[in-house]
Amino acid sequence: MASSEKNELLKGTLDMLVLQTLSVQPLHGYGIAQQIEALSDDALRVEQGSLYPALERLQKRGWITSKWGESPTGRRARYYTITAAGRRHLGNEISSFDAMLVAINRVLRRA
């Protein structure tokens, strides 16, 4: 069993990454995973499966919605779209994350 502290941290971060990814365009699950991996340079080493609980969580909050569509290769795939509320939430999260980063950096530099 993973340590719960790490879990909590990852949960919040993963949610934010998913929202950020979807804020550019609607994507299916694999697309989201690829984007995150590419952007984070594999720094966040999590199992890809952990994406799915996050997707359910975000839908439950009304931040993203899902809809079945067709992939470029012609197969049925579920596409996830960010909602207006999701964008608002993402904005808030990023600004408070930024503020925290600034604060942490300030503390670390002075220490």
């Binding site: 199992e47 890809q48 499966g49 952990s50 799915y52 609980p53 996050a54 997707l55 359910e56 969580r57 839908q59 439950k60």
Partner: peptide, 18 residues
């Protein structure tokens, strides 16, 4: 392998969905 334990994540998703 890269995806991880599918059963586990299905359970986790179920839990997340309520």
């Amino acid at each position: 392998r890269r995806f991880g334990n599918r059963t586990y994540y299905r359970e986790e998703s179920r839990r997340a969905a309520g």
